[in-house]
Amino acid sequence: MDLTLHVWRQAGAATAGRFVRYELGDVSPDMSFLEVLDLLNQQLIGRREEPVAFDHDCREGICGACGMVINGRPHGPRAATTACQLHMRHFPEGAEIWVEPWRARAFPVVKDLVVDRSAFDRIIQAGGFITARAGSAPEANAIPVPKGDADRAMDAAACIGCGACVAACPNASAMLFVAAKVSHLGLLPQGQPERAQRVLRMVEVMEAEGFGACSNHGECMAACPKEISIDFIARLNRDYLTSVFRHQPSEEGPDPAEG
């Protein structure tokens, strides 16, 4: 098939970007969208032009590296599909396709379609974990977990951290990402001791990173390649609210175990 691509090109964080139009022939319907970009890049290299920079790694829809807005939709038009798993058979012959990076203040553009998502890492660093020193864990079956809770925790834990939720949100909010982690850990008995401080710290960092507010549009859920539900956002809100009023912070200090 033949395609017309309009790809966002931006040399670096400090420079302005623009769309550049590329005509592409000989595209197989069995190609993934990233393979189309591969093909484009091979042609660009052949012409001694600079290839389009884009993040990608596993190409199986699990690592969360790839991400771009394709015709106005994060990861393209297919539900529950990352860009690497989006196949060209879903586009009509002669399609005109616009490709943009995630756009959010908290995700500055590195180059072309590559953005810096380290804000997500910093949110996890603030509290998205359960403290369990290697060697100190109790026997795995000592604490039974109701299957329903384990299943819902898994639903939330399926997040791949790609940032499509932020990209899709009219407010560039990261609530779905944060809610997924807070819910995953908060649904499990192992996550209870740190539950209140986890949600408070993660929300604090989320806001400091410059993500927008959740207005309950639900676009994040529609864009999420793992179809994580905004019900988890309700859960996060409740956790946050009860934590603000109930949590008694322990005295800030070094980790007791490490002195």
Partner: peptide
């Protein structure tokens, strides 16, 4: 170790 960390293994 993984269960203590909150890995949601099938149950």
């Amino acid at each position: 170790q993984c269960v203590a960390q909150g890995v949601p293994f099938a149950r």
